[in-house]
Amino acid sequence: MTDTTIRKSVFLAADKPRVWDFLTKTDLLTQWFHPAQSDLSEGEDYLLTSQKDGDRMCWGTVEVMKPVDYMKWSFTVGPMQGKMSTVEWWLEEAPGGTRLTLEHSELPNSPDGYGLVLALDKGWHGFMGNLHDLATAPAPA
Rank of each mutant, 00 (worst) to 15 (best):
D3H: 03
W20R: 10
T98M: 01
E63K: 00
P108R: 03
W73M: 03
E92A: 14
F11V: 07
G82P: 11
K16S: 13
Y114N: 05
L12P: 00
D3Q: 08
L47H: 00
H125I: 04
G43V: 00
F22G: 02
P95Q: 05
K72D: 00
K25Q: 13
Y114P: 01
D27V: 05
T49L: 15
L48G: 06
L102K: 02
H132T: 08
T98S: 05
H125N: 15
T49N: 15
V62T: 12
V10L: 03
A36L: 10
R99M: 06
G54Y: 09
G113Y: 12
A36G: 11
A119Y: 15
Y70K: 07
M84L: 12
F22V: 01
T24G: 09
W59K: 13
K83S: 08
T101Q: 02
T26V: 09
M80S: 00
E44Q: 10
S110A: 01
W73E: 02
S85Y: 01
G113M: 13
L23Q: 03
P95R: 04
W89V: 04
D133I: 15
M1A: 11
M65I: 09
G43A: 01
F22Y: 09
P35W: 11
L120P: 04
W124F: 12
A137W: 15
S38K: 11
P67L: 06
K8V: 02
K83V: 05
G113T: 14
H125V: 08
L47K: 02
V87E: 00
A137Y: 14
L107P: 12
T26Q: 13
L120S: 05
S38H: 10
T26N: 01
P138C: 10
R56L: 03
F75V: 00
K8R: 10
E92Y: 06
M80F: 01
W20V: 06
T4P: 09
L12I: 00
Q81M: 07
D55C: 11
D69C: 05
E106F: 09
L131I: 09
T98A: 03
L48V: 05
E93S: 05
A94N: 09
M1W: 08
T101L: 01
T4A: 12
F75H: 02
L29C: 08
T98N: 06
M65E: 06
Q31M: 10
M57I: 13
D3N: 14
D133L: 14
L47I: 02
A94K: 06
W32N: 12
W20C: 05
H34E: 13
G43Y: 01
A137F: 13
V64Q: 07
E93L: 06
T49S: 13
S9Q: 10
